[in-house]
């Protein structure tokens, strides 16, 4: 069995900026534990020395030339924003500092 607890799920929900009801916490804990149990076949493998693959293809270094191209006209995205103000995006007050 996976060691996933209800507290783990609550902590992950906070990290992911999601609110779960008590009922959802119970249900998600069970469902996520089921998926993680299925993943135990992976955890059981000894893959010491195997290199991880984060990319299916190895293309080498990919860069572009340092050239300026016109971006978007502000109205094209700001007018549809949830709360445009004074050419910018308004958000409610920020309590935490930037890391």
């Amino acid at each position: 069995m996976s060691e996933l607890t209800r507290d783990d799920v609550a902590k992950v929900a906070r990290l992911a900026r999601l609110h779960l009801t008590e009922e959802e916490l119970d249900r998600f804990t069970g469902q996520l534990a089921q998926v993680l149990d299925h993943a135990n076949d992976l955890r059981a493998l000894d893959l010491t020395g195997v290199a991880p693959t984060a990319h299916p293809v190895d293309l080498g270094t990919v860069v572009r030339a340092d050239e300026v191209r016109p971006g978007l006209v502000r109205d094209a995205f700001l007018s549809a924003a949830p709360q445009p103000e004074d050419g910018r995006f308004a958000v409610p007050r920020i309590l935490g500092e930037e890391p």
């Binding site: 993943a39 992976l42 493998l45 893959l47 195997v50 290199a51 991880p52 693959t53 984060a54 299916p56």
Partner: peptide, 14 residues
């Protein structure tokens, strides 16, 4: 245990 191991399995599968 999870993501890192899954990336290695990806190598094994390839």
């Amino acid at each position: 245990a999870y993501y890192g191991q899954a990336l290695k399995v990806r190598t094994v599968m390839i």
